[in-house]
Amino acid sequence: MLVNDDFSLRAIVQTHDYTWVPSQQTGIERMMLDRLGGEAARATSIVRYAPGTGYPLHAHPGGEEILVLSGTFSEDNCHYPAGWYLRNPPGSAHQPGSAQGATIFVKLWQMSSAECQRVRINTADAANWHRQDSLAICPLFSSETEQVVLMKLAPGDLLPFRTDRRTELLLLGGQLAITGQVYAKGTWMRLPAGDTPPLQAGAAGATLYVKSGFSDYPQAGR
């Protein structure tokens, strides 16, 4: 399966574009943002768990990155409310689910084989944020090839990003505008290197997940 598979092109998915696809587990649905492969694939998705649903214990040979968007996501008797960021390195295994229901942003098969540390960060904790002028930043992960942060932009501010790196965004709150086109909460964007539109926060500001500089690691199932 191929979804937004040409990484040389700008890709934008807005909330009114969401199409939920049932997974192999009853009560769990996926909104596919990009995908290269079958059931075991390099994929970026939003996954929605109905209350009381989950997956059996399984491994992630290519690693898994998760941001909990709503509800409470659980794995291996640990519980993560909205705002938690998780990285499970290549070769890790878990048994995920949700007693009350949850929606999560998930990236699969997009980690270097050199990653070996689990990451758990509560982005709702103010101690994990710092300020750079009017910009607030919560660092999530950094390596030689990849940087992941949450950003809070003040009203009218432009999103700062490098011109030489591919950038991926998920709008978690507020609005963004590009030359008059307004994008609402839930919008996902992937911008190739060199594509740097003037992304401006709306009147209430904007909160975003921002990933930049990541490489194309080996893909599964393509």
Rank of each mutant, 00 (worst) to 15 (best):
Trp129Ala: 03
His130Pro: 11
Asp133Ser: 09
Ser134Asp: 07
Leu135Ser: 06
Leu135Phe: 04
Ala136Gly: 05
Ala136Glu: 14
Cys138Thr: 02
Cys138Arg: 01
Ser142Phe: 06
Ser142His: 15
Ser143His: 04
Glu144Ile: 01
Glu144Asn: 12
Glu146Trp: 10
Met151Pro: 12
Leu153Phe: 09
Ala154Asp: 05
Gly156Ala: 02
Leu158Phe: 01
Thr163Gly: 13
Asp164His: 14
Arg165Trp: 14
Arg165Ile: 08
Glu168Ala: 07
Leu170Trp: 04
Leu170Ser: 00
Leu170Asp: 02
Leu172Ser: 03
Gly173Ser: 08
Gly173Phe: 01
Gly173Ala: 08
Gln175Ser: 10
Gln175Trp: 00
Leu176Val: 07
Leu176Glu: 03
Leu176Ala: 08
Ala177Pro: 00
Thr179Cys: 13
Gly180Cys: 05
Gln181Ser: 15
Tyr183Ile: 00
Tyr183Gln: 00
Ala184Glu: 08
Ala184Phe: 00
Lys185Val: 13
Thr187Cys: 05
Trp188Ala: 02
Leu191Asp: 07
Leu191Gln: 08
Gly194Leu: 06
Asp195Glu: 15
Thr196Arg: 14
Pro198Glu: 02
Ala201His: 08
Gly202Thr: 14
Gly202Glu: 07
Gly202Pro: 14
Ala203Gly: 11
Gly205Cys: 11
Gly205Asp: 03
Ala206Glu: 05
Thr207Lys: 10
Leu208Lys: 03
Tyr209Ser: 04
Ser212Asp: 12
Gly213Trp: 07
Gly213Ser: 11
Phe214Lys: 05
Ser215Trp: 11
Ser215Thr: 15
Asp216Cys: 11
